[in-house]
Amino acid sequence: MENMDREELLRKIQEVEFACIDFNLYLDTHPNDEKALRDYNTLANEAMKLRKIYEINYGPLTNFGFSLTQYPFAWLNEPWPWEGK
Rank of each mutant, 00 (worst) to 15 (best):
E34P: 03
D5T: 06
L43D: 08
M1K: 13
F23R: 13
P72N: 02
M48Y: 08
F66P: 00
N3R: 10
E8L: 09
Y58H: 04
G84A: 10
P31N: 05
F23Y: 15
Y58S: 02
T29I: 12
P60E: 01
M4I: 00
M48G: 09
D33A: 12
G84K: 02
W75R: 04
I13H: 00
E83P: 00
I21M: 13
Y54P: 03
P81H: 08
T42L: 15
G59Q: 00
R11Y: 10
Y71G: 03
K49E: 14
Y58M: 02
D28H: 14
W80H: 11
K49V: 12
N57C: 02
Q14R: 15
L68D: 12
E7F: 03
K49G: 10
N45T: 13
L25I: 00
W82Q: 10
Y54V: 02
L9D: 10
A44N: 14
A47V: 07
E15N: 06
C20S: 09
Q70E: 03
E78T: 05
D33R: 08
M48A: 14
M1G: 14
L37N: 14
Y71W: 11
P31G: 08
I53D: 08
E46P: 03
W82R: 06
P79E: 08
T62F: 06
E17W: 00
D33T: 08
E83N: 07
L43P: 09
L61N: 04
T42D: 15
R51I: 01
L50V: 01
E17L: 13
M1Y: 12
C20Y: 02
Y26H: 11
W82G: 00
D22Q: 15
P60L: 04
A74F: 03
N24T: 14
